[in-house]
C-alpha cells in the first residue's frame, strides 16, 4: 500500500479531491512543494506510489509556473510538466502560466 507522505487535512478524502498523478522524480517533488504554496487554503493529500505520486487537493489544485521555477531553481515551462503528468483526477486547464485541476460539479 502507498505511503501518505504529506497531508494537510482533517483526514477526509472527499469526493472532490482533484490533482495530478506524476511520475516520481525532481519535477514531481517540486510540484508537491508548489501545490502547497499555490493552494494555501485547500486540504491536501500526497500519496507516494514509488513510480508515481498522487497529489490531491480539495476542490481545485493549482500549479503555477513561477512556483515551479522557484522550487526547481531553474527556468521551467509549464509544458514540461507534461513529461511527468501520467494521469489526473478532475478536469484540466493547461496554460503557459499555470495548470489547474478542478471539478465543475462539487458534492
Amino acid at each position: 500500500m502507498h505511503d501518505q507522505v504529506a497531508a494537510r487535512t482533517s483526514g477526509n478524502d472527499s469526493k472532490n479531491m482533484v490533482g495530478p498523478v506524476l511520475k516520481s522524480g525532481d519535477i514531481a517533488e517540486a510540484a508537491i512543494a508548489a501545490v502547497q504554496d499555490d493552494n494555501p487554503a485547500a486540504a491536501l493529500i500526497v500519496e507516494n506510489h514509488e513510480a508515481y505520486v498522487r497529489i490531491k487537493a480539495e476542490g481545485q489544485c493549482l500549479i503555477r509556473q513561477s512556483t515551479m521555477e522557484h522550487h526547481l531553481g531553474r527556468p521551467f515551462e509549464m509544458a514540461e510538466l507534461e513529461t511527468v503528468l501520467a494521469s489526473f483526477a478532475g478536469q484540466i486547464e493547461a496554460t503557459p502560466e499555470y495548470m489547474r485541476f478542478y471539478f465543475d460539479k462539487v458534492f
Binding site: 511520475k23 513510480a51 508515481y52 507534461e82 513529461t83 511527468v84 503528468l85 501520467a86 494521469s87 489526473f88
Partner: peptide
C-alpha cells in the same frame, strides 16, 4: 510505461 501514460493523459 509511465512515460507512455503521460501522452495518454494529454
Amino acid at each position: 510505461i509511465s512515460s507512455v501514460q503521460t501522452d495518454e493523459a494529454r
